[in-house]
Structure formats: structure tokens, C-alpha cells
Computed example of a mutant assay.
Amino acid sequence: MSGDEKMRAKGEQVKGAIKETTGRAIGNERMAGEGRAERAKGDAREAKEKTKDAFRH
């Protein structure tokens, strides 16, 4: 399960970064903001998984 969560976190980070970059490129602040939020969500999920891994070992 942990591997799935890590993959989901990376996917959210990548998707968010692409959305943010695209939003900035076309001048759409809403899209850029959504991308930042999505990337932050992926960062938080990744941090949660790293914390869980730290306590397992």
C-alpha cells in the first residue's frame, strides 16, 4: 500500500507542476493556483509516507 501512496504523491506533484507551469505560461492565475495546491497536496502525502516509513524501521 505504501508504494501506491508514494506513486500517487509523485503523480500529484508532477501533475501540479505541469498545471502550474501551463497556467503561468498562458497567464491563467487560477490554473497556476490549482497547480500549486495540487503539488502541495502531493508534497504533504509524500511527507506522510516518509514519516510512516521512518517509524517502521
Score class of each variant (00 low, 15 high):
residue 16 G to D: 10
residue 40 A to E: 15
residue 56 R to S: 06
residue 49 E to A: 09
residue 29 E to G: 07
residue 12 E to K: 12
residue 12 E to N: 09
residue 33 G to L: 08
residue 43 D to H: 10
residue 4 D to E: 07
residue 3 G to Y: 02
residue 12 E to I: 02
residue 8 R to L: 13
residue 45 R to N: 13
residue 31 M to S: 11
residue 14 V to K: 02
residue 44 A to T: 07
residue 27 G to V: 10
residue 38 E to F: 00
residue 42 G to D: 07
residue 40 A to G: 11
residue 31 M to A: 10
residue 50 K to E: 11
residue 40 A to R: 15
residue 4 D to V: 05
residue 4 D to W: 00
residue 7 M to D: 10
residue 27 G to C: 09
residue 38 E to S: 07
residue 36 R to P: 00
residue 18 I to Q: 06
residue 7 M to W: 00
residue 18 I to W: 03
residue 10 K to E: 08
residue 28 N to G: 05
residue 2 S to D: 03
residue 25 A to I: 11
residue 8 R to Q: 14
residue 39 R to H: 12
residue 49 E to I: 06
residue 23 G to L: 08
residue 50 K to N: 11
residue 51 T to D: 12
residue 9 A to E: 05
residue 54 A to I: 03
residue 45 R to A: 15
residue 33 G to T: 07
residue 31 M to W: 01
residue 12 E to A: 08
residue 2 S to N: 02
residue 53 D to I: 00
residue 54 A to R: 09
residue 55 F to S: 12
residue 18 I to S: 04
residue 10 K to R: 12
residue 9 A to P: 03
residue 3 G to S: 08
residue 15 K to M: 13
residue 28 N to P: 03
residue 39 R to L: 05
residue 29 E to D: 15
residue 25 A to D: 14
residue 12 E to G: 03
residue 23 G to D: 07
residue 19 K to H: 04
residue 33 G to M: 09
residue 53 D to M: 01
residue 2 S to E: 02
residue 26 I to Q: 14
residue 9 A to T: 06
residue 11 G to Y: 08
residue 7 M to F: 01
residue 20 E to Y: 02
residue 27 G to S: 14
residue 43 D to Y: 06
residue 46 E to P: 00
residue 5 E to Y: 05
residue 21 T to E: 06
residue 33 G to N: 12
residue 31 M to V: 07
residue 18 I to Y: 03
residue 29 E to V: 05
residue 57 H to G: 12
residue 19 K to R: 12
residue 35 G to W: 02
residue 22 T to A: 13
residue 42 G to I: 08
residue 30 R to Q: 12
residue 43 D to K: 14
residue 30 R to C: 01
residue 14 V to M: 07
residue 45 R to G: 05
residue 34 E to F: 00
residue 16 G to M: 09
residue 44 A to M: 13
residue 9 A to W: 04
residue 20 E to M: 14
residue 6 K to L: 11
residue 33 G to P: 04
residue 4 D to F: 02
